[in-house]
């Protein structure tokens, strides 16, 4: 606290003009440091989003002559950062109605950037080898039967439902209790940890039940089959919006969207237009994502390869 107080004096001394300073308009100190046009993109932690950013970055730098910074921010804080102009664009959003209302409708600091072209879906999945051996596991009503086989060290006596990053949208705790399942939700803590866990289980052909989503490159490596949950209804969604602990149906299918900082939309020129035009398919995204995550290529290298092979896709974005 005292440190902050002393800092204030320092800050006051630094800014000789004692006018207003709107921190929401203060850009990153690293932006435009070299005097070039700079675009800052938000990178989310999952690899699909990194694929979007990698390709956008590559094209902005090599085709349009921008300098691109990427900053890793979690989903919700990214909205705040976007609103403040600390990042210029979010390339993949899975639906945050509350933030959308606040920033897009009320404050008008964020402008919609159109669809990404990919549809996202969240659900519960089991590995294909397990589903092949026990086809009835694919109905949620039978899950309790398999609870003992799906036990893990963290789940106590119950079956383990593996969840991933805390930043992801999840109703799993509510689902487990509302559907009367004998399972415990175990959070891996990050997607990285979750993927490692899945890969290890797959290597040993062990059964597991996991929260997962598509598009996701991991399906190419570890084939998984979705477990059917009670169907998604609007009524259930409305109920969940009021009180998240009442949710008892499957996750919706979400068209993924892009968002741009409002000022950037107006003044961003070619870069803003390009980002609005950015639109590709699930297969495209997965191709890049897998090169990054599985072949361990750098994001730049993966983007370079994809760009080389798919000019017909990205040429349209530059117009």
């Amino acid at each position: 606290m005292a440190a902050a107080a002393a800092l204030c004096t320092l800050a006051a001394a630094a800014t000789t003009a004692c006018g207003a300073a709107d921190m929401t308009k203060q850009a990153s100190p690293y932006a435009a440091a070299a005097g070039t046009k700079t675009v800052t993109l938000s990178v989310q932690s999952w690899v699909g989003a990194r694929a979007n950013t990698a390709v956008a970055k590559y094209l902005l730098e090599h085709e349009l002559g921008y300098r691109v910074d990427t900053v890793q921010v979690d989903e919700v804080p990214a909205w705040d950062a976007l609103s403040q102009g600390r990042v210029d664009a979010i390339m993949e959003d899975w639906g945050h109605p509350e933030q959308e209302k606040r920033y897009v409708e009320d404050k008008k600091t964020i402008a919609p950037g159109g669809d990404l072209g990919v549809t996202g879906h969240i659900g519960w999945w089991v590995p294909k080898y397990f589903a092949d051996a026990h086809p009835d596991v694919l109905d949620w009503r039978n899950l309790n039967k398999y609870a003992s086989q799906l036990r893990g060290p963290e789940s106590g006596g119950k079956g383990q439902l593996l969840d991933g990053s805390p930043s992801y949208v999840t109703n799993d705790k509510a689902l487990v209790s509302n559907l009367g399942l004998d399972y415990k939700v175990v959070f891996a803590g990050s997607e990285a940890a979750q993927i490692t866990q899945i890969q290890q289980s797959a290597k040993d052909k062990k059964p597991f039940l996991t929260y997962w989503y598509e598009p996701q490159w991991l399906f190419n490596e570890v084939p998984m089959v979705e477990v059917k949950l009670p169907p998604y209804t609007q009524e259930c969604a409305d109920k969940g919006a009021k009180d998240p602990s009442t949710v008892n149906c499957a996750y919706p299918t979400t068209p993924l969207k892009k968002y741009l900082n409002a000022d950037f939309t107006r003044k961003g020129g070619k870069a803003a237009r390009f980002l609005k035009n950015f639109h590709w398919s699930k297969a495209d995204q997965n191709a890049v994502a897998q090169m990054i995550a599985e072949d361990k290529l750098s994001a730049d290298e993966a983007a370079k390869r994809w760009v080389k092979e798919n000019p017909e896709v990205w040429k349209k974005w530059l117009q």
């Binding site: 800050a11 630094a14 921190m23 929401t24 203060q26 440091a33």
Partner: peptide
């Protein structure tokens, strides 16, 4: 954050000074 005086005249300056210095 973009309207209240405490942010405009106090925290904003702190943030601005830091960003300026780092820059």
């Amino acid at each position: 954050r973009d309207s209240h005086w405490a942010f405009l005249y106090f925290f904003g300056h702190i943030s601005g000074a830091i960003i300026g210095a780092v820059h």
